[in-house]
Each structure stands twice: as C-alpha cells, then as structure tokens.
Design a protein around this nucleic acid. Sequence first.
DNA 1: AGCACGCCGACT
DNA 2: GTCGGCGTGCTC
Length: 828
Amino acid sequence: MLEFTEGNATARVTLFVEVVLPLAISKTYTYRVPNGWNADIAVGKRVIVQFGKNKVYSAIIYRVTDRPPELYEAKYILDLLDDSPIVDDVQLRLWDWISMYYLCALGEVMQAALPAALKLASETKIVAATGSSATDRSALNDKEYLILDALDISSELKVSDIVKLLGQKTVFPLLKKLFDKGLILISEEILPKYKPKMKVFIGLHDDYADDLGRKLLLDSLGNAPKQQDAVLAYIQLSRQYPKVPKADIMEASGCSSAIMAALVEKGIFTVEERAVSRLDGEDVEIAGDFTFNDAQSKAFDKIKGQFATKDVVLLHGVTASGKTQLYIRLIEEAVANGSNVLYLLPEIALTTQITERLRLHFGNKLGVYHSRFNDNERAEVWHKVLNNEYSVVVGARSAVFLPFRALGLVVVDEEHETSYKQFDPAPRYHARDTAIYLGHIHGAKVLLGSATPAIESYYNARAGKYGLVELKQRFGNSRLPEIVTVNISEESRKGTMLSYFSGTLLQEMEHALDQQQQVILFQNRRGHTPLLQCKTCGYIAKCIHCDVSLTYHKSSRKLHCHYCGFSEDPIQVCPACGSTHIESKGFGTERVEEELETLLPNARIARLDLDSTRGKHGFDRVLNAFDEQRYDILVGTQMVAKGLDFGKVSVIGIINADGLINYPDFRAYERAFSLLAQVSGRAGRRNSNGKVIVQSYAPSHRIIQQVIENDYEGMFMTEVTERKHYAYPPFFRLFKIDVKHKEQQAVYDAAQRLAASLREGLGQRVYGPEAPLVGRVRNHYIYSILLKVERAGISITKVKELVKVTLLYFEANKANKGVRVQVDVDPY
DNA sequence: AGCACGCCGACT
DNA sequence: GTCGGCGTGCTC
C-alpha cells in the first residue's frame, strides 16, 4: 500500500489516478493529480476530467499510483467532487466482475450503476469574448455574425442552441474559427444535478418553552388575532412532531407567509431549513407481529441450517405458503446482527405491496430503490445507503449496485422472473446472479425464493451447489382455485368442442359473463395462423433467413417471421408446385379472438400480445382497460401473467396446454408452467370461487392431470426431468452475437469460425451457428449469431474465455476487416 | 460515446 | 474545383 500522508517524504510524490469514464470504452485512463491534492485523493471519489478535445466528464477513481505513464503525458484532473468516496472497493470489484462476466466496458457498468444525478451533466457553453467590438465583425460571414448577434442577446448559448439557430449539424469547425479569432470563449460548465429537497421548519423561542411563557405570549398577541392563530396552530402541531413544518402551520391556521414572517421578525418563531426526504412514509410505527406455523418454523430452521454450509439457499415454497414471513424473520435477524439486507424484487409493481408489509417491521430503516424514482430520489437513497441509514433496502434490478456497507443477507424474491435480466443496453446483467456474486464478495448469505424456481437454480440446488429448502404447506385457509382439466380428444369425440373451446370452458365463460365476472384466456402463440402449408406438395411458408415457419397476421394481412421480423405478402399459390390448396395449421391469439367474436358476440374482447401492445404505453393501456372492466375477456400470450391482480376474474382458460409441455425449448416450457401457477394463484387469492380450466389432448392430458393432482407447483419440472419425457438435452447455454457488416457472406464466415473455435474447446457440444438477419441500419446488416452449447459439465467461465479469445482473434485478423462483433452471453 | 481525419462521389 | 457523406481510429 502506498502512503500519501502529508508532512512526510511521500507528500511530495506526484500521484496519478486511473479513472473509469462513463463511456463504452474498455480501458481506464490515467490523469495527473495537481500539487497539494494528494491527501484528498481516494479510490471511489469522483473527479472531473477532460477527455478528448473539449469534452468533460465526471469519472470515478479506480486506482491510485505514483508511477507516471511512460508513453504519454497525462492530463491534470480538473476537479475533485467528493469529500468521501461514493463507491467502495467492494462495488468496484462487483463492477469488474460484471464487465468480465457480461463482456462489457467498465464505463457501461458505471452508467448502469450510478444514478444519473451522481453522473453530473456536462454542457458545453459558448460565451462572447470580452472586448469584441462591432468593427471586428465586418469581416465575418453571415453565420458567424448570427452567432455573435445571438450572444449579445443571451449571454451564453449551448452548442445545441447554435445547432438550432443555424439549422445545421456541424457547428464545431465554425465555432473553432470564431474561437481562433478570439471572438468567443468555449467554456465547460459542470452542473451538479442532485439537490436535496429543503423544507422550512418552525420552532418557538426558548422564552415560551413552558406553559406560562406560552400563555403570556398568546395574551400579548391579543390585538393580532392572525398571529395568535399561527402560534396556537404551532402549539397544537408541536405535540405531533418535534419540528413543525412551516407549511403545516400555514395550512392549519390559514395564515399567510407575511404573518409568519412577522412572527419570525418579532423573534417569536425560529426558522430552520432542513434537507428532507423526498420519499413518503418515513415515520411509520414498527408494528405488526405474526407467528409461524409448524411448516414455516421447520423451513426457517432448515434455511438457517443450510446457511451454515452454503452461501446460497433456494427456498422452493408453494404459493401462499408464507414465504414473505420467513423473509421478514430472516431480515430481522440479520438486522439485529447489525447487517444490511437487500431485498430484490423483479418488478416495480410488486414493490408497493411488499414495501407496505416490510415497513410495518422496519419503519424508516427501510429504503426503496428502483428505476421509476427520479434522479433526485435515487441519489438520495444512494447517499442514505452510503451513510448506512437504512437497514433494509427493497429494490428492483438496479438495487444490486447500491453501496452497501455491511451486507449480511440478500433475498431474491420470485427468483425465476426473467425481468431480472437486463437485455437492451449493456451491461446485460442478471440481477439474481449479480446478487449472488455481490453476496459472495460481502460474505453475505443469499436466499432465492420462488414457487416455481428457475430451471438453473433448481439444478444448482439439486446438484448441491445451493442449499434447498422446500415449503409445501399452504398458509391458513388460503387455497388455490379449482383446477379442471379437460381432455380435448374426448370432447371432440363427443362432439362438444366448439372451435377451440370445450363445452366445459364455454359454459364456465358464459356463466362468468352472466355474473359480470371476467375471463382470461391464455394462448401461447401470437398472430392468426402459425403455419401455412400446401395441401398438394407439403410446402411450408418459411422465413428466407431463419428456416422457421411464417405466421399469418390478420391485423397486418402479412406473413411474419417471429424470429427476425421479416415479413411478406401471404402466399396464394404454392411457390413449389403451383397448387392453390393452401392449408392453415394451428392458431394464435388473433384467431382465438376472432372465434370468440362469433361464439360470444356480446362479449367485449381485448387482446394482449406483442402486436396489440405496440407503442409506448400499449401494455398498460390494455391492462388498465381490462382492470376497469371495459372488457369481459382478455386473450393473450404469457404477457397476461405480467398484469396486476384482477379482482373480477373468475375463469382462466389455458386453451391448449400441450403446446406448453411439448415445447422443444425447456426454458419456454418452464416459463409457461410457471405462468400457469401464477395465473391460477392470482385467481385463487382474489377470487375464492375462481376456476382454472386446462385444455389438452389425450397423451399429455394424463400427465397434466397427474401433476395437478400432485400439487402441481414446481413438480412438473422434476417429473419431466426424471421421466426423460423430454427428447432434447435439457440444459443449454445460448450465445447471441450482433454483427454489423455490409457483406452477408463475411458474417457467415465469422459465425462459422466462432463456432469452429468454440467447438475446438468444447467438443461437439456446440450447435449452430444460425445467423438470422435481425435488422438493418442504413447499409449495415445486423445479424444475431446464435450458438447453442450443451450445458452439462461446461463452466461458464470457460465458455466466456473461449468467446473472448475468439473475438480477440477476430480483431487481430484483419481478413475480417470491418466486422464488428458485439457479444451478449447469457448465463443460462 | 464523441470527434477528427481521410477517402470517395455529386454538386455550386 | 469544394461540400459532405461515411469508415476508421483515438481519446490519458
């Protein structure tokens, strides 16, 4: 370790800092510390640095050294923003891990980790140089004149303002010319965005502290009734709060701010401005007790037992078994031991309910953090976590980045939820896996909880990597809705099927509608017809890129590829044999909707799938309309499970469960099953007479029936794994690589070589590549290269190393000139 | 991520 | 002949 204390010999050393810039650059950059700043420099503090020609960023100090860089002259740090570090060593280790594991730049992790308010906004400002006179301007062209004219009116302009002013994009050369001529100054202004919310509190002067003093005071204000009212309001309110907000007094007494000011002037009221929380419900009483039932007590002891030897425990507890109470007890214990606790939830919508419940137990020691909060609020939570003011933090995905001081426990609720994975901007991290690593560096225990564990977690638990605790007994009287299985084959024989609906389902739906109740129908396919086949020669309309069948969409009257987005006009004539006998096979949500319209003409039907929810708030709009009962029936894909609880739903129909259990992708199957559990769990919780109707064909019908009879949650997966009902190797890892290139052939070559290289390291367990076209930007084609790797026995670290090595090889080999590869490795 | 430099085609 | 598009490379 280096010593940088002032006063001894080392104080004279010139320090250099490596910083992380909030950009997608893989390197760190080294800057020079100005003289005399050494004592204030520390890892995790923010500095302002110039990067490139005229850009200024706030960066995080990543490392401190006294070795000057050899190959270049380091620029100076422009400013130091923090008195104490805003991220600690543990976090930087987490950032390192994320950038390694998810193959992204450290700066991208920083972008995701820090709330925007802590990242500072840099805005280039243009001001007129002093002393530039009118005579200087005669030699200028129109544009230059325009800029200076505008600067006369408003003292400073942003670069973006000048872009608007001139109506052209490239203003930098122009500004540079003006700058060189000494007519303008380009200044970089850093504006800290985070401002704590201030509130004015009123106190009473010490002279009036006791009852006598107050009486005298009130008497003395006899000829100022309004002021008297204000003082009375203060006395009243001060019984409730130690400090009384000014606004509350004004509201209670109906006084204006002039009257308040008069009282302050007289020295009766004292004023104090304090930073207050922007978050509500800070002062809630800690209450709400409960006792465990037998099953819960056992599970609780078992979890603690498992934690003795394992860092991660999977709690597999059926719906309504009281998992939350187990979490609360565990959290209480951890807090009692002086630890921080992180409680992760997959969705913001769920935080409110759980927060209410946890607030009863932890009061204002509970923090909430998610992306719907604005910057100020997020920065505030960040600072409070940093100052260790919260014992427990409830949050969505991004909460794993908070600067915990002494993390002792992480609870990942609904750990199977796919929304824990961030997809679009890098870092493409999975919050559950990141939380496990976070727990690891903190030496904290991690509890994963779910009624329907993710396949990989379940596998890890059964393989002994995680502990496994099961909680099968339901809590109290809560029960699941009645589940009715319908054998479609049988009903077909009897002739009671009407279109895709069994007599049983139709009856239940009609009954529900009669009672002003609602219905949800689940169909795991979007579009109208998923397969068009020539009856004469067997030709199937397929995507020209992806080799998957094209789905007919009624709404667009086109055939669509659900894989890459390709679309074309529907075929009327078979391109292979010229026959006009084109057969429609299968059905999607659009078709279900269409059939319903004829079967139940009076019902109001809404559709919830990727197509009906296009647009900004499409999803919420459909769900809200359904919740407000503007529709009777909701037909949808797995999206329907993402909705909130609907009080009026009494019937849930799974139109065809075969599609779920025979699905060739194990994860899709698992997801669909979990959906069944969730949807029915919801119906049961809110509507005790709810019914779930599961339709399926004869062979799978028996399995479905059996599983449901055996308390279906989570069991299905075990059943299938053990019975080898499933024809494919069960575990896969998936690689998705975006490649930009003008020439399509080079992309295939790149994919082939990547696959070949992986195969070299992993044997024949690499399948692919498939390289469907996923989009086009100008003359760039963007492909997604998919490689499936059989999961068993391969460590993800090894796979990633290989991918990295291969990519380096690409970069080094200029035969691939122009191929840009972006990698997203999924840790499944 | 920006931004500059440099190379090509299409215009006053 | 110059303007401006895009490909490429660099930023401490």
